[in-house]
Design a protein around this nucleic acid. Structure first.
Lengths: 211, 211, 211, 211
DNA sequence: AATGAATGAGGTTTCATTCAT
DNA sequence: GATGAATGAAACCTCATTCAT
């Protein structure tokens, strides 16, 4: 036990530095964007020297790519994982309330990745494969199960999944935009609590807009 | 007549240069992103000297801000303007087929603006005020009218509008991501024509997902 | 005439900046070596901004490659060009005295190129093709002519040329080394004037070392 | 015996590490040049940690300086040491064939030292004093002896030595350059075997170029 | 003695912007 | 008005060297 201690402490320090860099990068990329964020800023924010970054990542861009893996895990093990016994309305409400473990924590990361993927084909491909499609697949399975159970009506599960996932993503983006314009935020969200919002979302998705 | 000709030609030339710069910027920002695009690239693409850009725009960033006005006009005069006599399904189908005057032409521009707005508060605010909210307002009006007419059920029109607009935007973003990954594109879109897709979208939005 | 003036002055300024950069680079590369010399040093020495270098050369390495062309011209149009009527001894003496138009001016450049070519295959190839081989060819021609005239004995002209050219280059290198060690310089060159040196060189090459 | 064993093994290990570093440095400096070679590369090649280098050498530059001593020994104990009874032609032929213990093994090292000495006064001085001058002295002694014996004609032995040593060095440099350009190599060396080459060199040096 | 993670100064290169022509 | 050469700040990245383990 004592013999493994130095090795453990090294590994701990290593993990610390790498984690600090990733956290700093996530924060800065989200706030200011990938291109504007400099390696110097990341280093300062992470509390390490600039050169240290390059012990753990071969280039600035590899930090960005690493963030995808950070996002893919929580997305895939999302709250859709075990919904046994919950009502659909409750499941959807939770998905859009996006407060539990997800929104607050991962929205900045997802926002960054989505934004950068707009002009980086590699990133787009990875984001699609490792984050968006796994989530779509989960949603699709959920819908298929419900169709089989006769609760949802016969419609293409993949298209329905796309509708839902689309709304989920847009919620992240739209919330961000609103955060930049307090007046608009008040006007748009003013009269509803987030829970009411989520409730209506779920209601509309389930029941449709038409009478 | 002759006397006005030099003045006209001057104005024409001025308009030409400014327009050329804006078009070049739109194209390049959309393809490669704002940060990666250099003023030199814009100048070359526009067929003017680098210095000429600064006769029309105080800085590179002002070119980007100018693009918003380019986007706001067509958005506001969108296909929702006169839908008198069309069925809801047809209206929505058209909105998502996004073929008429809109998708092909403005998607790259909107994509760029959306992406940059993720880390530029000013831009976010303007995009919200001049592009997104006007569109939301139009959709909301449409929904309110339908509710009054008893065709849509009693639900908050603003939230419903947000659902629709969200799906609209996500379509642009998702299509872009898919364009970067041919395999995924085939898998996701493979079995449906764009029209079928739009049809199902409209159907789900109107009728809801639940039986 | 007046109309061409601005264009001329531009071209003049352009030529000035490029020439200044090349001269500064030659000086600094020779004194401190290619790797140690920084673009900042070159810019300061040339009296231009660091960025200006990149208007004329795509990279620092291209400055070095450009120097080869600077060297190839004077080498090829060297003093071997017209030796009609001079005695062989006189021709060789002049070659090794290397004072006329050559040594002082081009030795630092050749020294730099030779040194860098030791670990840069591209440079080595170009140096060989554009500087060393042309000079060898000239010397070889000269020797062949002399053999035909019955003045030189029947020996492979190419090997003889290599002997001569080798001694020529080594003179440059050895002189540089001696310049770094005043004591050695005194010991080696002490008792001979440069002219006597050159005289004996010529004599030994022509007559051989053996009795 | 047993008591001296740990001390021996320590010395052995020390020698091992130091030797490994020097060998690695020699190899890398020769292949890629001093500036391009990093301490990390040396450490990896030598099979030690980067920090270990600094237990044996105060700085990277001191490794280079140490290499001179590696070169000086074999140079001074070169094949000129005992030539009793051999013909001059044979001695010279051997010197230029540079096959015996010399060329293959030390050419890369000498090449590197020569190249770096072009812009490092300290190194130049040491190279001169410890490698070049000892060799020159040996050659000079040899020539003086021959002059005394009446075999060589009355000429300044030091200048003649310089001619010979110059050709020797240039052979190393020129061979390196040719190795970078296969086409040129074929053209230059094509029709002669190395032995023929060496034979003619010796012949020309002894007999002179003139009839 | 040996390690290798950490450092941070400094290198090359880019690019928005200015200004003399 | 139009040009494009010139600028220089600042970006990303490297690497000789140090030092806690």
């Amino acid at each position: 036990m004592r013999s493994s201690s130095p090795e453990q402490s090294r590994r701990k320090r290593v993990a610390d530095a790498k984690t600090a860099i990733l956290q700093a990068a996530t924060r800065l990329f989200a706030e200011r964007g990938y291109d504007i964020t400099t390696t110097r800023m990341i280093a300062r924010e992470a509390g390490v020297a600039e050169g240290t970054i390059y012990l753990y990542f071969p280039s600035k861009r590899h930090i960005l790519l690493s963030l995808i893996r950070q996002a893919s895990v929580p997305v895939v093990t999302s709250q859709l994982a075990d919904t046994e016994g919950q009502s659909d309305e409750s499941v959807l409400r939770v998905l859009f309330t996006e407060r539990i473990r997800f929104g607050r924590e991962y929205a900045p990361l997802l926002k960054t990745l989505l934004s950068e993927a707009m002009h980086d084909a590699d990133l787009a491909q990875q984001l699609l494969q490792e984050v968006i499609q796994p989530l779509s697949a989960l949603v699709k399975e959920y819908i298929e199960k419900r169709i089989e159970e006769g609760v949802f009506r016969e419609a293409p599960a993949d298209i329905a999944a796309r509708v839902l996932v689309g709304m989920f993503w847009f919620t992240i983006v739209y919330d961000h935009l609103l955060a930049c314009d307090p007046a608009a935020k008040a006007e748009v969200l003013g009269s509803y609590t987030p829970e009411e919002y989520a409730q209506w979302f779920a209601n509309l998705v389930l029941g449709g807009i038409a009478r």
